[in-house]
Nucleic acid binder design. Sequence first.
DNA 1: TTCGGTGCAAACTTTTTGCAGAGTA
DNA 2: TACTCTGCAAAAAGTTTGCACCGAA
Lengths: 155, 155
Amino acid sequence: MSPHDVQEAVRQTYQAYLTRHGLKSTVQREIIIKRFVKSRGHLSADELYAALREEHPSIGLATIYRTLKILTEAGIAREQRFNDGFTRYEFNGPDDRHHDHLVCTACGRVEEFENREIERLQEEVANIHGFAINDHKLELYGLCPDCARSGRNVG
Amino acid sequence: MSPHDVQEAVRQTYQAYLTRHGLKSTVQREIIIKRFVKSRGHLSADELYAALREEHPSIGLATIYRTLKILTEAGIAREQRFNDGFTRYEFNGPDDRHHDHLVCTACGRVEEFENREIERLQEEVANIHGFAINDHKLELYGLCPDCARSGRNVG
DNA sequence: TTCGGTGCAAACTTTTTGCAGAGTA
DNA sequence: TACTCTGCAAAAAGTTTGCACCGAA
């Protein structure tokens, strides 16, 4: 899927969600969403706020939180809480599948990975315990190649 | 290891930590630790505070936080952040090995499990990405057998 | 014209910290 | 006696909410 197709698919999902819930489209939401989709990283509300502040200083932090909540409910974003205290929002594109995370404890870099075999074993564990799983979280913390090489160990 | 032996081992680790860091033993700390070790669950500071309030209403929440921090640094407790917003402290006994968690999204029950094969695959993933892992977190969220049976789905 | 949205500031929640008095070694 | 510890209340830090005005449909 091309970046343009992704933008378009997101727009459709978003519009459908608004209509279905009697909500309205606004310029602030458009700006926030475009920026969020563009930076496909793992942003916190505050980071997104900072990223927009220069070009759009009038957009408030509260609006960012409210918009991210809408995106999460519409399935366009996913909330992630790593061990650094605040919530990050990850872009959940139309063709994205579930994945887990490698988190660098020195520079904060986050990499995604997918491993079917681990997921299968998780199912197995859940079955043994009689749990009906509907979500999971797997995070590996350590030093990324760059930080390991340069001997860094703090953020 | 019998419960008594566990208490004794914890006491030794704790005392050694205090001595090594020039800290002092106090009655409040004794009370908090005893209660914490007894309830081997996954307690938040506030839950521990509530549990002690009846018998020891004068112990402040700040002291609980401070004591849990000491226990964590001494290796007797481990901080766990699930998806419910606050930090839980898990007892890390002298003979406990690493384990992961099954969390019921309805009643909050937490079960522990251990799976060597999953851990091996995690190492493999980390190697492929060039990360040097020193910690990880795996949580499976869903309904525990009781809640699944009774059709509950909220906490 | 009607509601929902926005920015701001205040409120909230969980955790930390400053302080003056109390307790331990 | 010399520090550390305690409880309290205030402060932090991240997130949510109330309100009066603004703007989309």
